[in-house]
């Protein structure tokens, strides 16, 4: 149960990384930092400015989309075709954003108001936090929205075309530059969305982004880079693996299971469950 909920959360957190890896061939190290920015923005809009939490979430995502566009233009665009370069840049960027967050929001956890502090009672002696259920189901909902956007809209089609073959896409009149720009913004907004949805359950501190980035990497390697379906499967698998691992082997090692799976998959099946190799 906890595994499935955490799985949906992981899937949403990884969706942006997967999109960027697929369309731009960029491994985005700073994804987790966009996640915490999303959480901080929604905290400030809802707590300090008193906006309605849902509205605050939307505004926060909008902001992040713009930040994403800006970062793509200034930092990422010059590194296309040089995966090492872009990885180094996003790695440094993650440290920079982490410290900006530390200075502007302080080291203490920020928790936007939760919808509910209660738990639901299931059969027998089993309880589960309502807020965590909300986080899980809204993650799943947002993930499905994203999936439909990529699969069913014209814009999604263009994104897929660029991901598959940028030259071909260019040849049929798609501006691959613009598609990449928007994809990056979208990915950053997705990270922000995860932050908005999760922070009432797991309050964020400036260093919360790092574990999220790492688990997103595990998920996209599982699912194959750039595959959205794989992303969901990878997320669920990671959630379950961590949960069973900590229940039956050791709670202290729950994160390790993901990393071991990552190394195993890279060594034996680098394309992941569905996807394609970079």
């Amino acid at each position: 149960m906890n595994g499935l909920v955490m799985g949906a959360i992981y899937a949403l957190s990884a969706a942006g990384v997967s999109l960027v890896a697929g369309v731009m061939r960029v491994i985005n190290f700073s994804h987790g930092e966009f996640y915490i920015l999303g959480a901080y923005f929604s905290y400030y809009f809802s707590v300090s400015l008193g906006l309605n939490p849902v509205l605050a979430a939307v505004v926060a995502m909008g902001f992040l989309f713009l930040i994403g566009l800006f970062i793509e233009r200034t930092l990422i665009r010059s590194t296309y075709g040089q995966p090492m370069q872009s990885m180094i840049i996003t790695f440094i960027l993650s440290i920079v954003l982490q410290n900006i967050a530390l200075i502007s929001f302080g080291p203490y956890p920020k928790k936007p108001p939760a919808f509910s502090e209660d738990s639901v009672h299931f059969i027998g002696d089993f309880n589960y936090g309502i807020q965590r259920l909300i986080a899980g189901s809204s993650s799943l909902f947002l993930f499905c929205l994203f999936y439909l956007f990529i699969k069913k809209t014209r814009f999604g089609l263009k994104i897929r075309a660029v991901a598959q073959d940028p030259q071909m896409a260019e040849a049929v009149g798609i501006h691959s530059k613009r598609i990449r720009l928007v994809s990056f913004g979208l990915a950053v907004a997705l990270a922000g969305a995860a932050g908005v949805v999760l922070s009432p359950t797991f309050p964020v501190v400036p260093t919360s982004g790092e574990p999220l980035t790492l688990s997103a990497f595990v998920v996209i390697v599982f699912g194959g880079m750039g595959s959205i379906r794989g992303c969901l499967m990878g997320g669920l698998l990671l959630g379950l693996a961590e949960n069973f691992g900590s229940a039956y082997i050791s709670t202290m090692y729950s994160q390790v299971f993901g990393f071991i799976l990552l190394i195993g998959i890279i060594l034996f099946r680098p394309t992941g469950i569905y996807g394609n190799k970079i």
């Binding site: 502090e117 209660d118 738990s119 009672h121 309880n127 589960y128 936090g129 807020q131 965590r132």
Partner: peptide
Amino acid sequence: VSQARELS
């Protein structure tokens, strides 16, 4: 503390 309450 908050998760202890969630799990009652």
